[in-house]
């Protein structure tokens, strides 16, 4: 049978090209559309602005993509951002910590939350959607408890570099996103544990029988997801210069949208970081372009929701074809 399938594949070269890079075609189409529709869109200032706006999304999306690859989901990323925001701000302002220490502590905390998610999911074998939903609520509550719901501000000046600084013409958050994306690509493409993500997500039992410590893989993936959400939380904090309980609200849905747009299958086993980047950029370009065109917030919501639905529909159709 191999010969039939293989040659079929060759015959479908164009289709498989579209499947591989289709997402970039969509991105290019959007870029062309907004360039024509709005005169303020196509200039380096605006495009760098888009890149900076999506950088937090891009950072979180890498960890989130890992979780999706595994066939799981991490709804808690938004409230991890919030908590890191509040805790890091509190440590600097109320406890008077050095910003570097405060950032490290915040990242440690976010990784720990991720690890707990992974531990509960793997050890107690609870559905990820429930575990991370519960975690979302708990963490949000903790953030309110620490801050009383009030913003925390008055950071050392040096702290602003992370979110507001530039390296040459490029905003620091964009550079951080670049590093995180490259790291994500490296993990998936080159390391053995990155390979395990696909194996476990594709067929958990077969992975276990192949000698993979499935639980360890889950701990690692959820820890990474928490860690990257923490990184984004720090960047957001530095950019807004004040710790706020609403900073990560609803973030999980944007990240999910970006990942799915980028072709990461919600049923696990499929996905690439390069395409996730495209998904992130599409969302950014869409938001930016719609604002430039002066389209109302509410219409934007309708459009974004439709984009998510469309992307999942495409994924489902391809899955069905594949089987």
């Amino acid at each position: 049978m191999y010969s039939i399938k293989n040659l079929q594949g060759a015959g479908n070269g164009a289709a498989s090209f579209a499947k591989q890079f289709g997402i970039y075609l969509v991105l290019v189409a959007l870029l062309i559309f907004f360039s024509i529709a709005s005169e303020n869109f196509l200039n380096s200032h605006n495009l760098l602005n888009v890149a900076r706006q999506v950088s937090m999304l891009g950072i979180v999306a890498v960890g989130f993509a890992f979780v999706l690859l595994l066939g799981g989901i991490d709804l808690s990323v938004g409230s991890v951002i919030t908590l890191v925001n509040i805790v890091c701000a509190w440590l600097m302002v109320e406890a008077g910590w050095n910003p570097v220490l405060a950032v490290l502590a915040a990242l440690l905390l976010s990784s720990l939350i991720g690890f707990m998610n992974g531990w509960i999911i793997a050890k107690i074998q609870m559905p990820p959607i429930i575990v991370t939903l519960a975690m979302l609520i708990i963490i949000e509550g903790v953030a309110y408890l620490i801050s009383d719901g009030l913003p925390i501000y008055g950071f050392p000046e040096s702290f602003a570099v992370i979110g507001q600084g530039y390296l040459g013409p490029i905003p620091i958050p964009v550079i951080i996103m670049g590093i995180v994306m490259a790291l994500g690509g490296f993990i998936l493409g080159k390391t053995y544990f990155g390979r395990y993500f696909y194996a476990v997500g594709g067929n958990e039992e077969a992975a276990k029988l192949s000698g993979i410590d499935v639980n360890k893989v889950k701990y690692l993936v959820y820890t990474l997801s928490g860690f990257f959400a923490g990184v984004a939380g720090v960047v957001i904090l530095s950019r807004t210069n004040s710790g706020q309980v609403l900073s990560g609200k609803g973030f999980e849905f944007d990240v999910l949208t970006a990942c799915v747009l980028g072709g990461v299958s919600v049923s696990g086993g499929h996905g690439k970081i390069s395409n996730v980047l495209a998904g992130v950029l599409i969302l950014g370009v869409l938001s930016n372009g719609l604002v430039l065109l002066d389209i109302s917030q509410f219409v934007q919501m309708v459009i974004k929701g439709s984009v998510l639905l469309g992307a999942v529909a495409l994924d489902s159709l391809q899955q069905r074809k594949g089987s």
């Binding site: 390979r195 696909y198 194996a199 067929n203 077969a206 992975a207 029988l209 192949s210 499929h270």
Partner: peptide, 21 residues
């Protein structure tokens, strides 16, 4: 199919999975 193969992974990846480390 259920316990042996990683169906969506290529042949090379299936052969190497137990010795990757």
């Amino acid at each position: 199919k259920k316990l042996g193969a990683l169906l969506d992974v290529d042949i090379k990846g299936n052969i190497s999975v137990s010795v990757l480390e």
